[in-house]
Design a binder for these strands. Structure first.
Length: 255
DNA sequence: ATGGTAGCCGCGCTA
């Protein structure tokens, strides 16, 4: 079973790339972020024609999350019941007996800003809710754009980024708190190339210079981590013409 | 040095 997450930065713009990537890689479950379109504009026909069911929680211009699944999803939950939020950033469904959560964690803009406080509060509420969900559903996947580089290995220039947004200690502590729930970072279950990143700034030739961060993650609960056989980043997608600034991330489970 | 690029129905904001 292939699980994937991808921040597409506008599903409307990236739909042709998404369809090509689905056909080439055949993931079973895909968590999407930054769809940036209201649910009535979701490309339901194209997704169905590609062979996927879907659930979506979108809004215009900003945010928006979705799930694409080979098997029909059930028990769809919009947002976090513990954290009322106008911003569409969280979507959960049960697929093939697994609780799958697609998350678009707030960026936070700058350490100390109002948006930073919102990010930390959002993550605190996520951890509290996931603790409940894990008690009820031990097989759980949390995948998405976390907007956190968990470790200096995940940063192209750790000295330049030290203490900055996406790398600050409180953000990393919030990430560790998710791991402390019993979740494993699937990417780090395996040896990986040095300087593996999932996001590169559009500006200043960020991708060409590999000035990136690994901020997109697939976290697996223990029963799923025990079955995880591979994890990788589909970096080649970032090389396409008019790419998202994020590359897809994949984890494979032996069934 | 606070730049630069992309996407949004926009006339700045978010990332």
């Amino acid at each position: 079973m292939k699980l994937a997450t991808w921040n597409v930065n506008s599903l409307k713009i990236r739909l042709p790339q998404l369809l090509n990537w689905l056909a080439a890689r055949q993931p079973d479950v895909v968590c999407l972020q930054e769809t940036k379109l209201p649910d009535q504009d979701f490309p339901r026909e194209a997704i169905a024609a590609a062979g996927y069911h879907f659930a979506c929680s979108g809004q215009k211009t900003y945010n928006g999350v979705a799930l694409l699944t080979r098997e029909a999803p059930s028990d769809i939950v919009f947002g976090n019941p513990l954290f009322p939020d106008e911003q569409k950033r969280l979507l959960t469904a049960t697929v093939q007996g697994i609780c799958v959560v697609s998350a678009y964690v707030p960026n936070g803009q700058a350490v100390g800003s109002d948006k930073y406080a919102y990010k930390l509060a959002w993550l605190d509420a996520l951890a509290r809710w996931l603790a409940e969900r894990l008690a009820a559903t031990p097989r759980l996947v949390l995948a998405g754009d976390f907007n956190i580089a968990p470790d200096d290995r995940d940063v192209h220039d750790p000295d330049a980024w030290a203490g900055q947004i996406l790398c600050s200690d409180p953000e990393r502590a919030a990430f560790r708190r998710l791991l402390d729930l019993g979740l494993k970072d699937s990417f780090r279950l395996f040896d990986q190339p040095e300087k593996s990143f999932s996001w590169w700034d559009y500006r200043m030739l960020g991708f060409q210079k590999n000035r990136g961060l690994r901020i997109d993650h697939i976290l697996l609960s223990e029963p799923l981590a025990a079955r995880c056989s591979a994890a990788s980043i589909h970096r080649e997608v970032r090389k396409l013409e008019r790419p998202s600034d994020h590359a897809p991330v994949i984890a494979e489970l032996a069934c």
